[in-house]
Amino acid sequence: MMQERNLLLERLGTALKYAILIIGAIMMVFPFAWMLDASLMTSSEIQRRPPALYPAEVQWQNFTQLLDVLPFGRLYLNSLIVTISTVIGVLFTSSLAGFAFAKYQFPGREVLFYIILATMMIPFFVTLIPVFYIVRQLGWIDSYQGLILPSITSAYGIFLMRQFIVSIPDELLDAARIDGAPEPMIYWRIIIPLTRPALATLGTFVFIGSWNAFLWPLLVINSRDLYTVPLGLNTLRTFAAEARNLNLLMSGTVLSVVPTLILFIFLQRYFIQGITLTGLKG
């Protein structure tokens, strides 16, 4: 009797657990689903009262219409150029400096490393005005350089790579030195291959951050030819302020979130690893 009741309670608990998780998951996915749904409706379906729950006929032409308003191919290209350059830059400078801080002895090393740690605590918005001014003085306004170059080093990246490289045994490096390998070759042939997991983690984070970046491009870029995806979405937002273009706004949003979603589904292991690796030890 008692046991039966316990079993019943346990079953009830399990059912409740799954119910909560499912409700949570639905809430998580719903905005994406609703966006996709609305992106395939006509605008009158969206404005009707009560509104349509799904398109009577799937409006694929919303996407072709959207491309007439906003050249998404160009936006993707610009975002890719900026994002990939930024990722390569951060990975290169972080691993190089991380290597130096982990494996070389030089006067001032400790002090410089503390400066790097302090730099990690500087939030982006405090340096916004001066960096904008510097970039303008350098003549980089409205250019790829202006988007890419200020962010090709990351104090956080250096810190992360240093922590990772410290654990590589010195014997490996010394063995290469005995074979006459010059120092840059040790970096390229030993450090880079051995830090691949850390580079992948750092790379995915920088990729997402750079792809989603909005405030800095908003300041630096004026001409439409150089618009990145978020800038394009922002123009579309103002264009679609009137209700009759809400379906186009949603198709634009679909196109702007799909790349990161796909990337995440393929690389989710690195994200989760990265968070557990960097988040807690940080």
């Binding site: 400078t93 972080s94 190089l96 400096a97 290597f99 130096a100 801080f101 070389y104 002895q105 030089f106 006067p107 090393r109 410089l112 400066i115 790097i116 730099t119 500087i122 405090v126 340096t127 005005i129 001066p130 960096v131 001014y133 510097i134 200020p150 962010s151 090709i152 080093t153 104090a155 250096i158 120092e183 840059p184 970096y187």
Partner: peptide, 30 residues
Amino acid sequence: RMIWGYVFIAIPILWLLVFSLGPILFSGWV
């Protein structure tokens, strides 16, 4: 080897000076 250490950190440190540490001082000044 020490010199290589400096070579490897040169660009990252310069960049942090120009785009992070310098700006925060400048910002305080402004």
